[in-house]
Structure formats: C-alpha cells, structure tokens
Design a protein around this nucleic acid. Structure first.
Lengths: 301, 301
DNA sequence: CAGCTCCATGCAGCAACGCTACACAGATGG
DNA sequence: CCATCTGTGTAGCGTTGCTGCATGGAGCTG
C-alpha cells in the first residue's frame, strides 16, 4: 500500500467515478482501474462494486478512503514542518472565492501574502450547496452561509469562520428614511424592492422581513450581482439588501442596520483536511484570519 | 514522497548507517543510497551528511524521520481497521523475550492466541539497555526493568507494563528460616549466596541488602540462569534471589518475601509505535495484558 | 604508515512496474 | 435504438528501481 493508492481511494470516495478520478489525477481511466485492482489483490479485499454503469466503494473501500484522508493529513503536516528548511513558505495556491465575499478579503489577502506565494484566484458564484464540490478542485474556498452553524455537508472539510457580516438595508441617500440609524420591517414594508432571483439566500431574508411586517414588498427587479443592486438603489428604483463590509462606501447609497429580524452571513474559508495541513495553505488561512480581524472582530470558533 | 521512502528515513534514523538499513530491508546499500538521493532531489533538501566513513541525518532528515513514524503509525492503524474484513486477526508476529519473563507469560500467551496468529519466539538474555535495540528487529519485546519508571531510552517506544513481580529470597526448604513468612536483611546477613554476575540487575539488589544489613554475603557462585540458581539453592549451597511468579513451585525451595528493602521488577512489552498499531500486535498486547492479570493485579498505567 | 576493513557512492545493465492507446461490453437516456 | 456514458482488458512501451561491480575515502591495526 502506497500513498499513490490512498489518494486514489480518497478521490474516488469524493468524486464517485473512476473517470472523474482519472480526470482529476490527469491519467487514463484504465490506469485508475488497474491500480485499483492491483490494490484489491494485495489486500485481498474488494474495494469497489459495480452499480449501474459505474462503481461505488464497498465498506472496506470506504474505510480505506477515510483512512486515506488521515494519512494524507499527517503526510502534509510533516511536509509542512520541512517547509522551514525549503526557503520558508512558498508555492502556489488555488483559491475559489464567492465574488461578494472575495471583494473585500482577496485584496487584503494578496497584500498580506508576500510575493513568495502565488495566489491563483477563481471566482465562482455558486449556491451554498456547491462549495463542498469546489473544495475538491481548489486548495481554499471562500464562501458564505446564512446560518450561524456550519452546513452539514461541510462536515469532512476544515472550516475556518472568518467574518460575521451583517446584511443591511440599502436605500437611496435621498430616501426619507436615510437619515435614520436603523430600520425595522414595519418601516420599510410595502416599499419598492431590488431583489435577487428566487431561491437565492438573500431572498430568504426578504421573505423573513415580509413575514415580520405582514406586508410584501413591490419587487421591481431581481438580479444576482450586488453591484447592480447597488446601482439601481442609488438611482432611486427601490431598496434592497447589501452586505455591510463588502459594499464599497458610496455617497448615493445608505446602508442601515435592520432591527427585528436576524440577519447576517458568515464568511468562511473551506479546505480539505489534508490540504489544510500544507504549509502554504496554513499560512494563507492565518493571513485570511488576520485580514478578517482588521475588518471586524472574529466570530466564535 | 512515498511510504517506501519514509520507512527508509525511519530505519536510517534508528540504525544509523545505510548498510544497516539495507540489511534490514533486504536490499543493496546502493539501492538505499540511490533512493535517498532521489528523495533529496525532489525535496530540494540534503537529508544526510557524511561523517567519518558513514553518514548521519541532517536536521531536516531527522525531522522527516520522526514524521515517518507518525505516518507509519496512522497507516498501520488504518490497515488494522481493515483487518476485520480480512478474516479477522491473523498473521505472524515476532516476539523477543527475556527468558525469565517469558517463562510464565509466553505459554499463557500462546494458549490465549488462537491458531490464527503464528507467534515466533526468540529468547534473548540481554541487558536492560539493549531492549530498545531488540525492538528494532522484532514486533514485540518482553523485557523487564528494576525501576518503577520506564527507562529514558524507551521514550520512542510503546511501553505496556504487564506485571510488577516481587523478587523473593530463595532458600533451601531445610534451612532454619524456611518456616518464616518473610525475612529481613538482618535475618540473612552473612549467609552463603548464589548470585549473578556483577553488573546484572539482581546484583544491585544484593548490594542493597548488604548495605541494609551492614554485612556482606559469602558469595559461593555467580550464574546467569535462574534455574541454575534454583537448583543450587535447592541443593543447599546457599540462598539467592528469584522472581516470585517466574519461579516454578518446588518442594525443595522456599521463596520468602524480603522486608525492609524495596524489591521487584516490572515486566513490560515494548514495540515500535507504528508496529504497535498493527492489528495482530494490538491483539497480542491485549492478550498479554490478560495473561498478566491472571497472574497478578495490573501495575499502574 | 602501510594494509585491511568497512562504508557510501557511481555506473551499467536488466527486470518489473505502471502508464498510454485502443478495443470492447454493459447500462443509460433521449 | 442509437449515442454516449460507464468500467475493463490487452498490447506495447517508457520509466523506475533494483542488482552487481568498481571506486574512493575514513578508520582501525600491527
């Protein structure tokens, strides 16, 4: 049993098909199949069983896959200790970031990390449920969630909560309420609304406000990009929801805290456990923590 | 970096020379040298440096060697979890035993372990300081120590204390003191003595008794094998020291507890940490614990 | 200080392993 | 029912990693 075989199992557990594993490891499906069979022979155990036109891990296979994560984590941790001798922290790191979360953290991160670490950023605007999938193909994922607790499908990932960011009500500077310090659902009930498409997380907050006020908004637009929301709010077409730290200060838009409804999202960094042990990744995580601390006090954990 | 390379480092750390590593792994020194250099190239770090006509590990090399133990332990633990699917605990295990400790534990161990595990026993009567070396070449070492605390050179070994065995004064059944329940140094001062060679652990106890009594024994013989000591005691040539549990009951010899001087040895099992994680070895350790518990209540830890 | 021994290392050659390329069979789904 | 996906088997080939042998240096010994 070698490390190469273990990563095979680990990938297969995550990706579910030999072809996907082969793609991820840049080899032929045939090679994956052969190595798997060889491993089965040496162990004397069936690690996969056919199901439909694919395969799935048997129980010993899954056992070995979870063990592979432990082993990989220890190996990465050992390699990290060697990094001090290899000219300090250096290397490349692939980061996938939710744009609305990255807009504030990424510039700070790049500034904090020296030229020694090359950060390759990929922006992905995906649903909460897809962050775990992103973690398979990137070293670090910067995402968010609406609930205070980590999602259940992040269970096998290292989760570092960076920022608890309140969601504010954005309204035009010219609006009568703009002078207030905060607003309540009753204050803004029935207003024109620049929303997000249905099912998007911010839309759940709109529903909560409407439920609290007992009166729906008049939805004039639904769009994904927060900067568009901001622009339309500024132009006076209605109000909307914008995250407090990730929205650049602007004279035309006021952000007011919302009272009476629990708001806020948690921005966190995700990484596969064995990846999180790598020296560069640990360094980047520390840097991210520091960046977040400069923006707002750290959330619990 | 592969597992094969890590065991290389681990062995080199323990054995100190490429040739010794090569012998232990049944390969040519040339092969070891080549793989080491290849690893150095991929890591970009010197792992060994020449010293005299041999080599020694550099600091990163030693770091990697200690990391290799951690990795090997996790790998072994993962493999152990697989054992349940591989037809339960089975396999071969090499045990090195101090004869005077093995005489009571080994038969019990062999009886307790089923036919599934093949136990290969090697008896070695070596000094306390050499048990660590034995652990390099055997899965399990059954040894003893005179002090209650584990030796410092066992620091990197898994130590399982099995038995705290008192050392008794053996005297002929015909001796006037044989009817007593126990003896003190003063009782036996000046007697004829069947001892062990100088420097042997039991000899330190003799010195302690003499110091307590203020009078030396008359040493008539010095021998290593406890059965010879027993035979000479039985024949009436003097008294001596014998371990309580490891001495078979005999009508001609009485074993009396010694009051006033701290006696006793601790019999323990030693294994390299990564070996101790293996399923068979863990099973054997549990069996040894059970055997020891049948003989006497377990010592602390 | 010469000769012997032991250690590590380099090089040539060879065997084995692990990959690619390609073909093929079964399952799925429009 | 064809197109397409899945995994698998086989032939061939390149790379890897070993042995065997020779070399050079360091220590031990007389």
């Amino acid at each position: 049993m070698e490390l190469r075989d273990l990563v095979l199992l680990r990938e297969l557990d995550e990706r579910g098909s030999l072809t996907a594993v082969a793609r991820a490891l840049s080899v032929t499906p045939s090679a994956v199949s052969q190595r798997l069979r060889a491993l089965e022979r040496t162990l004397g155990l069936p690690l996969t069983e056919p199901v439909g036109r694919g395969v799935r891990l048997t129980e010993p296979g899954r056992l070995l896959a979870t063990g592979a994560v432990e082993v990989a984590a220890v190996v990465a941790s050992v390699e990290a200790r060697l990094a001090a001798f290899q000219g300090g922290i250096a290397g490349r790191i692939d980061v996938a970031a939710l744009p609305s979360a990255g807009v504030v953290l990424l510039p700070a991160l790049l500034g904090r990390l020296g030229a020694e670490v090359e950060v390759r950023v990929h922006d992905h605007d995906v649903a909460e449920a897809d962050y775990a999938a992103l973690a398979r193909d990137h070293d670090l994922v910067i995402g968010h969630r609406m609930s205070p607790e980590p999602r259940r499908d992040w269970q096998h990932l290292r989760v570092v909560d960076l920022l608890r960011e309140p969601l504010d009500i954005a309204l035009p500077a010219a609006h009568p309420l703009a002078a207030r310090e905060a607003v309540t659902p009753a204050d803004i009930a029935g207003e024109r609304w620049i929303g997000v498409p249905e099912g998007y997380p911010f839309d759940d907050l709109r529903l909560a406000i409407e439920a609290a006020a007992g009166e729906p908004f008049r939805i004039v637009q639904r769009m994904r990009d927060n900067r568009l929301v901001e622009a339309l709010v500024e132009a006076g077409f209605g109000m909307g929801i914008l995250p407090r730290f990730s929205t650049r200060p602007s004279t035309g838009v006021r952000l007011l805290p919302l009272r009476g409804v629990a708001t806020g999202r948690v921005i966190s960094a995700l990484a596969r456990p064995e990846v999180a042990e790598r020296a560069v990744v640990r360094h980047a995580l520390e840097a991210l923590r520091a960046c977040a601390a400069e923006i707002a006090p750290a959330p619990r954990r």
